[in-house]
Amino acid sequence: MSANEMDEVHAVTAAAAQAVQEERVSAAARDGLDVLLQQALRSSLVPSGCQAAFEVLDDISHVQEKKMVVLTISSYLFRLVVMFHFTADAATRAHFARLHNVAAAEMSEQALLDAIAECGNLCCGIFNRELGRYFPHLGMSTPNVIDRQCAAYLQKLNCAHLRHFAIDLAELPESPRFHVSLCVSAYAPLDFAVAAEEQVDTTGELELF
């Protein structure tokens, strides 16, 4: 068998594995995960009283951010990897300075990184808490920063559901367009539905855990 034939076999095998993965997550579960992540983002990334517009992107190859804050929420049924794309530029610094009520000039490079990681931590904490209503045993990692170029290889994580969001803050035109990715790996059939009354902005206090 030639090298090209081997590559074709590998491609077919990978596509079949991908199809099996995708079948494990029901449409309702995909919608539920998207809704819960958007609610968590509204409660963490968006300043209070500000409206956020979410757009679903099929492709993020054009996104020019430099880094990603990565967090994982794990269960024995699935693994959720949430990635917050960012560039440590002036607009990002101004946004997180406003979010933390400090002057942008006073925010050092490390403080900015910490603020973005903390924002991701808060977002995933809310996401984790809301998911806990449907799945009893969950755990959440601490945040890590990796290069944005790693996002080109997300399919290597055997993801059953991959969703990219772009977030615009219409009332704050100077804020950058944020990009967040959700990658779900399922180890068992995943099916749950977020009830309509749950689909509201939850700004409750985080539980200590």
Partner: peptide, 8 residues
């Protein structure tokens, strides 16, 4: 991160 979250 999966190990860490699984640990928690």
């Amino acid at each position: 991160q999966d190990l860490q979250a699984g640990g928690k």
